[in-house]
């Protein structure tokens, strides 16, 4: 349960950051929070108390179904990689944006309006 709360909490914190802040860097951090929150929630779904990691070490573990669900963990691995890629891309765009406009606030621009 604590995992759900933690994950949900992180998600909400990230969301709050995105809702309130206009600074691009902070918004990216907020996005990161949200991602981490979702990842924790996913792991928590697959977790069964008292079971070990789904690594093919000994036959008994598999046979007695002593492992947690491996699929969410695989998903999270993929999601983390994707998250990193997106964050990197976002940061590089922010750098380029800052060079051109000298500001970290998107809403000051009037060109792309309405």
């Amino acid at each position: 349960m604590i995992y759900y709360i933690a994950g949900g909490g992180l998600f909400l914190i990230g969301l709050y950051i995105l809702l309130v802040n206009r600074n691009l860097i902070k918004m990216i951090i907020g996005l990161g929070f949200m991602e981490t929150g979702v990842n924790i929630i996913i792991i928590a779904f697959g977790y069964v108390k008292g079971k070990t990691a789904p690594i093919l070490s000994t036959k008994e573990l598999i046979n007695n179904r002593q492992v947690v669900d491996p699929l969410p963990q695989a998903l999270v691995l993929t999601a983390i990689v994707i998250g990193v890629a997106v964050t990197a891309l976002a940061l590089s765009m922010v750098v380029s944006y800052y060079k051109k406009r000298g500001s970290l606030n998107l809403s000051k621009n009037k060109e792309l309006k309405w």
Binding site: L19, L106, S107, N109, L112, K113, W114
Partner: peptide, 18 residues
């Protein structure tokens, strides 16, 4: 309508999604 909806502010969009 368009000024309310397509205002170009990311925070506002997140609000709208929520």
């Amino acid at each position: 309508a368009r000024k309310l909806l397509y205002h170009g502010n990311v925070n506002g969009y997140v609000w709208a999604i929520i």
